[in-house]
């Protein structure tokens, strides 16, 4: 099933081409992080459709995933 995945800041190199991916139904966010080759402790903030989730959140068709390392500013 298709999802949108964007990795930001120092994780940008792990973004799939065009931000699009096809994954197995029911895959969790943690498994997605593994699939992209990102060390799990490198992901500080994970969003699915703009909501913060942990590494055990199941993904659905058409989800928008955003991954960040530790960032701040202001």
């Amino acid at each position: 099933m298709p999802i949108t995945v964007n990795c930001f800041a120092t994780l940008a190199q792990y973004s799939p081409p065009g931000g699009q991916m096809d994954i197995a139904p029911g895959m969790t966010t943690g498994k997605l992080v593994d699939l992209l080759g990102i060390p799990r402790d490198g992901v500080k903030i994970l969003f699915v459709n703009g909501l913060r989730v942990d590494l055990d959140a199941p993904l659905k068709d058409g989800d928008r995933v955003g991954m960040f390392p530790a960032v701040a500013g202001g």
Binding site: N6, F8, G66, V71, G73
Partner: peptide, 12 residues
């Protein structure tokens, strides 16, 4: 820099 926040606020 501080503009690193643009993407994360946008995602949120």
């Amino acid at each position: 820099g501080t503009a690193v926040l643009v993407n994360i606020l946008n995602e949120a």
